[in-house]
């Protein structure tokens, strides 16, 4: 949900799913049309920031693979 401005993490620091959920909540609240104009503008700005961060994440995403147990063998032709 929408938190107070002060406690909101920056979109860049947020997990993809979290940022996306917040963006969706913002769109829904704006579509509701019940907000004050100032609040609408504030949420719009936040939404744009989230959107930019999400798009950047998608564009720049590099798969990170962490091995918890065992050691990954490089891919070979033979099937297991």
């Amino acid at each position: 949900m929408i938190m107070e401005a002060a406690s909101r993490p920056s979109p860049e620091e947020m997990a993809f799913g979290e940022a996306l959920s917040e963006l969706e909540a913002i769109v829904a609240s704006l579509e509701g049309g019940q907000l004050e104009l100032e609040e609408s503008l504030a949420r719009y700005e936040r939404g744009v920031a989230l959107l930019r961060a999400l798009q950047a994440k998608l564009a720049d995403a590099q798969q990170k693979v962490t091995t918890l147990i065992g050691e990954l063998e490089t891919e070979s032709a033979d099937d297991a």
Partner: peptide, 15 residues
């Protein structure tokens, strides 16, 4: 996973 959703981290337990 890399092709579809590189956003996520992959945690491999090789057993």
């Amino acid at each position: 996973l890399a092709r579809r959703y590189p956003v996520a981290e992959v945690l491999v337990a090789g057993v």
